[in-house]
Design a protein around this nucleic acid. Structure first.
Length: 563
RNA sequence: UGCCCGAUGGUGUAACUGGCAACACGCCUGACUCUGGAUCAGGAGUUUCCAGGUUCGAAUCCUGGUCGGGCAACCA
């Protein structure tokens, strides 16, 4: 793996460096990535993963834990923990033996809760959910103390034990911290520590019917694991005082929580809630739909871990709310794929071409370079024959100014083959549409150069009609039409912004024969078109290609600007 | 109406913690090219949110404002 360092130091790395220098944690650097297993990881998580694992990697001996924050069994499932592990590994990170679950600490957490009750710092409250909300006050008004707040510790202790024993109904009682109902920080107004949830947990089964809240579990988990820097996103800033409070009251080792801004990307949504909605609403074909910004979706689409990592490196880490242009992500995939992807020829929208002066049954095997960026990748043979297919978009009967490709009377080069000239156009009698091109080739230009030194304006890709394979290609575009999917008219839904053209399936594409046994997951550059990846669901011997990203295309841009 | 946080080209981030505002993406030129790809060369674009103040000197420090974000789950 390439060096994870970006060269620049963000404010978090600066803090880590300073703590190292002052010996605050005796030279230790321990971070953690703490996902809740209630959904699939997305590119926003990748930012956090790169940050946490990156910091550990950069500091010799540093470690990063993978800890599942599984304190709410209502939403969490094993399917999610497995996918998360797979995604982190695929991204190229290794938690070693440091795989943990907050649920591993349920016994300890329970003891700590008892400790706080005994110390008069926590109490069992019989208020209903609705009442607790009313007592909490509002953003501008202080809350009121619960009538159960001063219940004797012994009584709370007994009730808490009975809560654990399953004697009470869901929602009938909670354990709360006794802090300050007048605090301007709502999180400090006697927050709930434990609630009754008679639900089986994906790991602890039926052992518990009370579960700790995030706030009562997270900091202590960090403490147990000896984490030094507990890095989370901005929305937890208001929770930091509570994080600190629990640790201080318990008198245990106290890591430091640091918050950074979560990633936002143009033309997509990055919240588990919304992604779940897209999946459940059938707007996409699952968590790994190649249009999804999930790690599994991007993997299926053909993104590489390297590209994602270098992207995460580039965007930096700060506290400013910001939205990164998805073009930057695309730039990083192209950059990586350009270096590593095998070149092949594939025609997405075939237009039949007959080379009139080429022998009927001759087939020549022409040598083609696999990757001009990397000669070590070698060459392959591509069959050339009298009848070919070229890209429909590469021909225009009445070419506008900047169109360099094929047109009646014009000569172009067919890559690795010959110069050909268009000498005729055959139309479909019914539709009037161009059905076939008649061309002639110049035998002297075999290999691609004219002995007389004449030049052509463009080189085009092509495929033999008889010696090519039929294939399905799926073209993906941005999931949403607008840069900011959240920007909607009054009463409108963010899903109204879904891009109806985000998936285009082409099923009569033709690809060169070398692709016959392209394996799922393999990545290619279709010359002049884009980068493609073989879909894992491809039927044997009949590959389906997902477009990862198109090649930069000045002509397409020109044409679009002209309209 | 409370508390917390933030503000630097179009976008994302830097700037030895007071010393010429820079890097990447994007955009525009041009060169080169058997991918209109890649590569190379160049260019436009930031009066650092505003107003005061401190200072020889402020993106950086102070004061006041403006704008934006977060917070009232028994979610994380």
């Amino acid at each position: 793996m390439e060096k994870a360092t970006s060269g620049g130091t963000d404010f978090i790395r600066a803090i880590v460096a300073e703590d190292l220098e002052t010996g605050k944690y005796a030279g230790r650097v321990v971070t953690r990535f703490p996902p809740e297993p209630n959904g699939y990881l997305h590119i926003g998580h990748a930012k956090s993963i790169c940050l946490n694992f990156g910091i550990a990697l950069e500091n010799g001996g540093g470690v990063c834990h993978l800890r599942f924050d599984d304190t709410n069994p209502c939403k969490e499932e094993d399917e999610y923990v497995e996918s998360i592990k797979e995604d982190v590994r695929w991204l190229g990170f290794d938690w070693g033996r440091h795989l943990y679950y907050a649920s591993d600490y349920f016994d300890r957490l329970y003891e700590w809760a008892v400790q706080l009750i005994k110390a008069g710092k926590a109490y069992v409250c019989d208020l209903s959910t609705e009442q607790i909300r009313q007592y909490r006050g509002t953003l501008t008004e202080p809350g009121r103390e619960s009538p159960y707040r001063d219940r004797p510790a012994g009584e709370s202790l007994e009730l808490f034990e009975r809560m654990r024993a399953g004697e009470f109904e869901n929602g009938s009682r909670v354990l709360r911290a006794k802090i300050d109902m007048a605090s301007p920080n709502l999180n400090m107004r006697d927050p709930v520590m434990y609630r009754i949830l008679k639900v089986a947990h994906h790991r602890t089964g039926d052992k518990w019917c009370i579960y700790p809240m995030y706030d009562f579990a997270h900091g202590q988990s960090d403490s147990i694991e000896n984490v030094t820097h507990s890095i989370c996103t901005l929305e937890f800033e208001d929770h930091r005082p509570l994080y600190d409070w629990y640790l201080d009251q318990l008198g245990v080792y106290h890591p430091r929580q640091i918050e950074f801004a979560r990633l936002n990307l143009t033309y997509t949504v990055l919240s588990k809630r919304r992604l779940l909605e897209l999946v459940e609403g059938g707007h996409v074909k699952g968590w790994d739909d190649p249009r999804m910004p999930t790690i599994s979706g991007m993997r299926r689409r053909g993104y590489t871990p390297e590209a994602i990592r270098s992207f995460c490196n580039r965007i930096g880490v700060a506290k400013t709310d910001s939205t990164v242009d998805i073009a930057l992500l695309e730039h990083h995939v192209r950059e990586d794929l350009n270096r590593h992807a095998t070149r092949v020829m594939a025609v997405l929208k075939p237009l039949r071409v007959v080379i009139e002066n080429y022998p009927e049954d001759l087939v020549e095997e022409l040598e083609a370079v696999n990757n001009p960026e990397d000669p070590a990748m070698g060459t392959r043979k591509v069959p050339f024959s009298r009848v070919l297919y070229i890209e429909r978009d590469d021909f225009m009967e009445e070419p506008p100014k900047k169109f360099f490709r094929l047109a009646p009377g014009r000569e172009v080069r067919l890559r690795y083959a010959y110069f050909v000239r268009c000498v005729g156009v055959v139309r479909d009698e019914k539709t009037g549409e161009v059905a076939e091109l008649r061309c002639t080739y110049d035998p002297e230009t075999r290999g691609g150069d004219a002995p007389d030194g004449r030049k052509v304006k463009v080189t085009m890709h092509w495929v033999s009609a008889t010696r090519s394979l039929q294939a399905e290609v799926r073209l993906y575009d941005h999931l949403f039409s607008g840069e900011d999917p959240g920007e909607v008219e009054e009463d409108a839904d963010w899903k109204d912004n879904l891009n109806p053209g985000s998936l285009e399936v082409l099923d009569s594409c033709r690809v060169e024969p070398s692709l016959a046994d392209a394996a799922p997951g393999e990545r290619y550059q279709f010359e002049r078109v884009g980068y493609f990846c073989v879909d894992p669901d491809s039927p044997a011997g009949k590959p389906v290609f997902n477009r990862t990203v198109a090649l930069r295309d000045p002509w397409a841009k020109l044409r679009q600007a002209g309209k």
